[in-house]
Amino acid sequence: MTPPESPQTRTARRSAQTATLAEIAREAGVSAPTVSKVLNGRADVAPATRHRVEGLLRAHGYRRRRAEATRSPLIDLVFHELDSAWALEVIRGVENVAREAGLSVVLSESAGRLTPGRTWADQVAARRPHGVILVLSELDESQRALLTSRSIPFVVMDPAGDPGTDVPSIGATNWQGGLAATRHLVELGHTRIGAITGPSRMLCSRARVDGYRAALETAGLPVDPSLVVAGDFHHDAGYRLGVQLLRRPDRPTAVFAGNDLQALGLYEAARELGLRVPEDVSVVGFDDLPVARWVGPPLTTVRQPLTEMAEAAARLVLDLGRGDAAAATTRVELATSLVVRSSTAAPSKLSDQRALEKS
């Protein structure tokens, strides 16, 4: 049990903190109240002054004292986009953990940008939440420094890029998932397999298509670059790029769609072109959203444990808030798994013959 802090120790600690603030104020050429405003995320500080003070706070390694006592009962959950069933699964997972901890969840969106704007960082600093979870997003150096100086822990879920070894993150085995999806199609007998990827700037998207390529190469099949088209993880891209692939005279007999929304767009493209799933084209998605089992035909997909990933991210951010040193460098990848339903089958001989006649 930690012994109570003596009055002398408490006085010395307060004096050291005051001296540090005073030193930062002198170096910045501002008053101590101005430094306090910056620390508290107040908006009434000139941008140039804020930048100068925050630079000195970083240089001095200053952190807010007694951060736990000043935190609001909130977890900030940040999405780069908030417009799909994918996001609902993540929200559900974070809410499960937050509810148990007596916390609420604040949602925000960075309007498609992978890095939230500066206004967002100031608002988070003013709210002083228990922690921040960024989904398919990342922070720039100034935002990381702003949160660190206020002792606001943050975790990245499904990082957009390499978060670095010093940023706690939760992800999934995307490469293994892409490998499993494509291997399943190869084992069914498909040799001409297309792929609709996600954005190339996203780490998860690159890992999935790398798994696709690895499966083809392992099977001794050529990787045809013309059959790999870049999407954006949205339904419209699956439809548009699906039409592009399926109108080819040498069209693929199977497509790995990269995520479930693009797979559903591909379904629509096939229907419009008079093709049947899976008789004329097999389709595999990624995510295993609830809708995947109810569409016709039910979608073969790679299950990404989104709710479990979100729960793990929320627990990790709470561990960081409690000062768990081991959590500070935690990087976790939860396993993906192939869920086989009715959207995949062996290639039809008639379909292969038609493709050969048109080539």
Rank of each mutant, 00 (worst) to 15 (best):
R99Q: 15
F79Y: 02
G117F: 05
P47W: 04
R127Y: 10
V97Q: 02
G55S: 03
L107W: 06
E54C: 04
T119L: 10
T70I: 02
L103K: 03
L136S: 12
L103N: 02
D140T: 15
G112W: 04
N96D: 15
R128C: 12
L82G: 05
E54T: 06
E141F: 02
G112F: 02
Q123D: 09
H51A: 15
A67Q: 01
R127N: 08
A101Q: 10
G102S: 06
R128S: 14
A98F: 09
R66G: 14
H51Q: 15
E68K: 08
G117A: 13
H80G: 06
E68V: 14
I75P: 05
R118P: 07
N96C: 13
A126T: 00
R127L: 14
Q123L: 14
L56R: 03
L134D: 04
V90Y: 00
S108V: 14
E81W: 09
A46R: 11
I75E: 04
E95A: 01
E95S: 11
E68Y: 06
S84G: 12
H80Q: 07
D76R: 04
A43L: 08
L57Y: 05
G117W: 09
L114H: 10
L74Q: 07
L77H: 04
T119K: 11
R66E: 12
G61Y: 06
L136M: 12
A111P: 08
F79E: 00
I75Y: 08
A125L: 12
R50N: 06
W120M: 11
L74P: 04
A59Y: 07
A125M: 11
R118V: 09
R58P: 00
R128Q: 12
R63M: 14
E138W: 08
H130W: 15
S84W: 02
I133C: 04
A125R: 07
R58F: 09
A101K: 10
R64W: 07
G93K: 03
D140V: 15
S137V: 09
I91C: 02
A98I: 07
A111Y: 13
V53H: 03
G117M: 06
R58H: 09
A46V: 11
S104Q: 13
V94I: 13
D122F: 10
V105Y: 01
G112Q: 00
G102F: 02
R66T: 13
G112R: 05
A126C: 00
E100T: 15
V124K: 01
R50P: 00
V135H: 02
G93T: 07
L56N: 01
L77A: 05
W86Y: 14
D76G: 10
E141R: 10
V135M: 05
R58T: 05
A121T: 12
S84K: 06
A67V: 04
W120Q: 08
V94L: 07
L57G: 01
V45W: 10
P73L: 09
E138H: 10
